[in-house]
């Protein structure tokens, strides 16, 4: 049985999906790769833009997203974040806000 993903893992999966497409990806592709609901993805994308993980590019009819330096740093340090939060029991899913 798949373990429910927590916030950190979902952010990681979204960033990885965007980074894997050479930095520019449409929402539908992120939805497919990150395996979360449309509403949840919208919420995460909004917050990730506000917090500087990703950048939105409005190209007329469609939007694309690219990873910001903070997002890349998150991907690089993901294992450290997980190790630290797991060892000190800080890995509860909080959501945003």
């Amino acid at each position: 049985m798949n373990k429910k993903r927590d916030r950190l893992q979902i952010i990681h999966d979204i960033l990885k999906a965007i980074a894997s497409r050479n930095g520019r990806i449409k929402p539908t592709h992120i939805l497919y790769k990150s395996n979360i609901s449309h509403q949840m993805l919208e919420d995460y994308l909004k917050e990730m833009i506000v917090k500087g993980f990703i950048e939105e590019h409005d190209l007329g009819p469609s939007k694309t997203y690219s990873v910001m330096p903070k997002g890349f740093e998150y991907l690089n340090k993901y294992k450290l974040i997980i190790e630290f939060t797991e060892s000190f029991g800080l890995n509860e899913d909080e959501g945003f806000g």
Partner: peptide, 16 residues
């Protein structure tokens, strides 16, 4: 903890 909070914006890290 603060350094990782800055990276992840995980509130529990800030509180810790």
């Amino acid at each position: 903890a603060f350094k990782l909070y800055k990276l992840s914006e995980q509130r529990q890290l800030m509180l810790f």
